[in-house]
């Protein structure tokens, strides 16, 4: 005969069905309560958002829209595709009429020469037309933009009829759709960035002054930075530096190798507590 424990282990008693009914009732009741709480809180949040929107008035709308779009910009600027940041720079600077005659050699355009030129004949026509559209809209409101601080601005070409192929060459690798968004969000934010950070346009790792050795963004006293991200690309479009710390600047090295003199494209994304998401693109010159 087996032990008492074994006998009990093999001994089963079917409980009254009422037990399950009560368990199910308890579970169901709690699910309903939880659902009600969730849905009512969602409704509350929506209501609060609507109230806020209404209070701020219609003027704030464009800014909010622009902020919403920035994440897309972030995504767009990270990929391996080199043309991305460069062409973005050129578009940002387009409205600045005074620079249109500047030589194109300063620009990070070479990548366009390297990669895109071959495809120019085939693709230039349709892309040019797409690219021209956002540019045109941006150009209407260039007056209050101080994009010109960046020396690189010159890079970009005004979309005159003759130069269009160049623009298209730079943008061939990129899907046409994001272009208007980039242009728009930059338009909305241009200038505001300059109020909270200072971005040097030249640095020299071999310099004797420590401050000049590293390319580093300096926030001013008004800045209230919640997050920071910086990418730097070389003329070949390769990402040579990435940082999420505003205090960590680029020392001109990539994989331990000192990088040559030249222009480098930076993309800086700042999430400021007061100004929201700011994306800043430009070039910095490395001198040895």
């Amino acid at each position: 005969m087996s032990s008492l424990r074994e006998r009990f282990e093999n001994h089963n008693t079917q409980p009254d069905p009422e037990v399950w009914n009560r368990i199910e009732k308890t579970m169901h009741h709690r699910t309903v309560v939880r659902r009600t709480v969730v849905s009512s809180s969602v409704a509350l949040v929506a209501l609060a958002a609507a109230a806020l929107f209404w209070l701020k008035g219609p003027d704030t709308k464009p800014v909010q829209v622009a902020q919403k779009e920035t994440p897309e910009v972030v995504v767009a600027s990270n990929p391996v595709s080199v043309e991305e940041p460069i062409s973005a720079v050129s578009e940002e600077t387009m409205p600045v009429q005074s620079h249109e005659q500047m030589p194109k050699d300063n620009s990070p355009k070479p990548s366009a020469d390297n990669n895109a030129v071959e495809s120019r004949p085939a693709q230039s026509q349709p892309v040019a037309s797409v690219a021209a559209q956002p540019v045109a809209s941006v150009a209407e409101t260039p007056a209050h933009q101080n994009v010109s601080v960046d020396p690189i601005v010159a890079t970009a070409s005004q979309p005159t009829a003759s130069e269009r192929p160049v623009v298209s060459a730079a943008t061939t690798e990129r899907p046409a759709a994001p272009a208007p968004k980039l242009a728009q969000s930059d338009e909305n934010k241009a200038g505001s960035t300059d109020l909270i950070v200072w971005i040097p346009n030249v640095f020299s790792p071999d310099d004797e002054v420590a401050e000049n050795k590293v390319f580093k963004v300096k926030p001013n006293s008004e800045a209230n930075i919640r997050s920071f991200e910086m990418y730097i690309y070389n003329r070949g479009g390769r990402q040579v530096f990435h940082s999420k710390d505003i205090n960590q600047g680029w020392d001109g090295r990539f994989n331990g190798q000192a990088q040559p003199t030249g222009a480098y494209v930076y993309i800086i994304q700042i999430n400021d507590a007061d100004k929201g998401l700011i994306t800043k693109k430009g070039t910095v010159t490395l001198i040895r």
């Binding site: 009990f8 089963n12 409980p15 037990v19």
Partner: peptide
């Protein structure tokens, strides 16, 4: 249920208590 109800019965004096323990125990398990 069958094996656990036997267990609950062993610990309790009345069937109502066993059912209560069973109910609370399964809710706790879920």
């Amino acid at each position: 249920a069958p094996s656990m109800f036997t267990l609950c019965l062993r610990y309790t004096h009345t069937d109502e208590d066993a059912m209560d323990v069973m109910h609370d125990g399964f809710i706790k398990a879920f």
